[in-house]
Amino acid sequence: MSDPVIIMEDLSFSYDGHLVLEDVNLAIHEQELVSFVGPNGGGKTTLLKLMLGLLHPTKGTVRIFGKRPQDARPLIGYMPQHAHLDPQFPVSVMDVVLMGRLGLTRPFGPYTKADRIAAEEALRTLHVWDLRRKHFSALSGGQRQRVLIARALAPNPRLLLLDEPTAGLDVAIEGEFYELIRGFARKMTVVLVSHDLGFVSQLVHKVVCVKRSVVTHATSDITGEIISRVYGSEMKMVLHDRSNGGDIFKCITS
């Protein structure tokens, strides 16, 4: 197997003296499709931010493509949760997606032709090219998710990190989303954060359960016992279906 895209070794992270992640050892390889699952506040987003060099480990190391995370950023596409964005900000969809090109475009002045072509491609991939002139704030939650994923794709990354790409998504289009994400995974390594195990277990190769410590499972190994260990007694398994050739778990909060 090729060298891992992401390696975390003996990593711990504390915030204001509060231990968030402890003794994390993790390796994710080229073109794997991996999901971080776990309860809210379990450290999933923190793990992503450590991979981006936005946070720094208290102990241990992170290497992305063998580099320090901040040096690997040109190879990474990132979709943050959109809750922190100002809903009144006057910016068009196209301008949002072009932000993905900031590290590649010239140091000043307008975006280049190449930037616009890459942004167009990303918008078309996510089926939101028609929205390009719209105000970002005028979009629905699901449309915003797509635009932010398009922004993550615009730099043509080799590693895609998606924080809660399914949040606020209509159940009816979940299937289409599976296909999109599977498509990305054919070209690059994809890590997504989700608290919806039902969504990810149909989709990904590997599930990383994050609740202060980290345990990696092949999707097919997930059992009810693992789910309740990760989520505690709040979660219960309500459906167990083997029709897709793999195991499907639907989890709901009781």
């Binding site: 981006l52 936005l54 950023r73 040109p74 990474i76 990132y78 943050p80 922190h84 964005l85 100002d86 900000f89 910016v91 301008d95 949002v96 072009l98 932000m99 993905g100 090109r101 900031l102 590290g103 590649l104 475009t105 000043f108 002045g109 307008p110 975006y111 922004r151 730099p155």
Partner: peptide
């Protein structure tokens, strides 16, 4: 005017701007 795109990104989403390499 010259750094319009960059200021726009920093104002809209500074965390993303940092990841994008700014």
């Amino acid at each position: 005017v010259l750094f319009y795109n960059r200021f726009l990104a920093v104002c809209f989403d500074d965390e993303f701007a940092r990841v994008a390499g700014l």
